[in-house]
Design a protein around this nucleic acid. Structure first.
Length: 202
DNA sequence: TCTTAGATGCGCT
DNA sequence: GCGCATCTAAGAA
């Protein structure tokens, strides 16, 4: 069960459907210290015509003005990783969706740790309850940085594999966190009642 | 338990 | 310079 990858077509579905569909999927990360596995419990969708997306300028000025070194991976093939650095400290992990040329992605916001918790705590020495309940936290716990930007998520050392999908009636849609534009769009999805979901700042 | 401010560095204007 | 798909420590209650 931890070895079934997603078929490429999965990432060609509408990005909002992918954001729901990867809830329950597993992220498998191989590091020298061992194998780390986390279950995805919270995501956000970012669309090409989305004011909060790094590639929104495509709609305004055309692709040639919005395709930059930073967001290049979002224009690449679906099912690959888009990793970027922000706030001077943190890496964000996204799954690229849509055909190459259409910059959309799904941000992984929280994981439920399943395997390798001891190794994760070594990479991120904090109270275990704060190990992977946020987008910057989980990348630190899994040692994910820009070296994995553009990486094919069907291959080691970072793979996305199928788990038990979260049923639709257990998925909550909510406003995205930490953005200043399009804050009313319900593009954040999480598993209802899961204790690893990040908490919005008030 | 909750709220606030500061850190930190890259990409853009 | 300013903003940022964030996190943490410190302080109040």
């Amino acid at each position: 069960m931890t070895d079934t990858p997603f078929l490429p077509d999965f990432f060609l579905r509408p990005t909002l459907a992918v954001a729901r569909g990867v809830l329950g999927a597993l992220l498998v990360r191989d590091v020298p210290a061992g194998r780390l596995v986390g279950r995805i419990v919270e995501t956000e969708a970012y669309l090409f015509n989305d004011p909060a997306c790094h590639a929104v300028r495509m709609t305004l000025a055309g692709p040639e003005h919005c395709h930059t070194a930073r967001n290049a991976a979002m224009f690449g093939p679906p099912g690959h990783a888009y990793v970027y650095f922000t706030y001077g400290n943190h890496f964000m992990l996204n799954i690229v969706t849509q055909p190459a040329g259409t910059p959309e992605a799904v941000l992984i916001r929280a994981l439920e740790p399943l395997e390798g918790v001891g190794e994760m705590l070594h990479a991120r020495p904090v109270d275990p309850r704060n190990l992977t309940n946020g987008p910057g936290k989980l990348t630190q716990a899994l040692s994910i940085g820009t070296a994995l930007n553009g990486h094919d998520l069907s291959l080691p050392p970072l793979r996305l594999v199928q788990g038990t999908p979260v049923p639709e009636d257990a998925i909550v849609a909510a406003p995205r966190i930490g953005i200043t534009r399009a804050t009313e769009w319900l593009y954040r999805f999480y598993e209802r009642g899961n204790g690893w979901v990040s908490r919005p700042r008030s």
